[in-house]
């Protein structure tokens, strides 16, 4: 199994940390992982993206042109990455703030109302965990228990009290992905 993922959105949405937790979860179940961020001026207020690869084998290029999954969290990223999903691949997006919805017919398109659900749960910071939950419902490449282990490993001890809230967000995400059929 090799899963090649791009996660893209605004800086501050938790794009890079979502990728990091996913990568750590892969390590927890003895897989190979790579996490390659965009870095530099675009991170400071503009768009941020990260390429994550989780595989049973040694990973070759951590930089890719095409992906099995694109997780898209703003319009700029939709414009840039919709065309990079491999045929038959997955595009998961938060429709909040999206003005032009994806149009491809040869990929699987799902929406997750991450921003709305996070606001309803009273904490906008768990937005990225809701989206990650939705992704793992659609492609269970890592087990939830390993995500929790990954969270424990990647968060400093003083933040471990936040893990139950993150777990609730992951579960909320898992219950809510909605299949979108492009018009």
């Amino acid at each position: 199994m090799t899963e090649e993922i791009i996660i893209a959105g605004f800086g501050g949405q938790g794009v890079l940390s979502m990728g990091k937790i996913l990568a750590y979860s892969g390590i927890m179940q003895d897989q190979e992982v790579s996490w390659m961020p965009s870095y530099g001026p675009e991170m400071r207020g503009g768009t941020a993206n990260v390429t994550v690869i989780v595989s049973d084998e040694r990973i070759s290029s951590p930089i890719l042109n095409f992906y099995d999954t694109a997780i898209i969290l703003n319009q700029q990223s939709m414009d840039k990455f919709e065309s990079t999903v491999k045929p038959g691949g997955l595009l998961l997006y938060d429709p909040n703030g999206i003005t032009r919805h994806p149009e491809r017919k040869d990929i699987n398109i799902y929406a997750i109302e991450g921003a709305r659900l996070a606001a309803e749960m009273g904490n906008t910071k768990i937005f990225n965990m809701i989206v990650l939950g939705a992704y793992l419902k659609l492609k269970p490449i890592v087990k939830l228990e390993n995500v929790i282990l990954g969270l424990k490993k990647s968060l400093p001890e003083r933040y471990h009290k936040l893990i139950p809230m993150n777990e609730a967000a992951l579960k909320a995400g898992m219950e809510n992905p909605q299949e979108m059929v492009s018009a």
């Binding site: 990091k20 992982v33 790579s34 870095y39 990973i59 951590p62």
Partner: peptide, 10 residues
Amino acid sequence: DGMIGQMMEK
């Protein structure tokens, strides 16, 4: 280079 420096792996 910047790629190996900035990327994360196991």
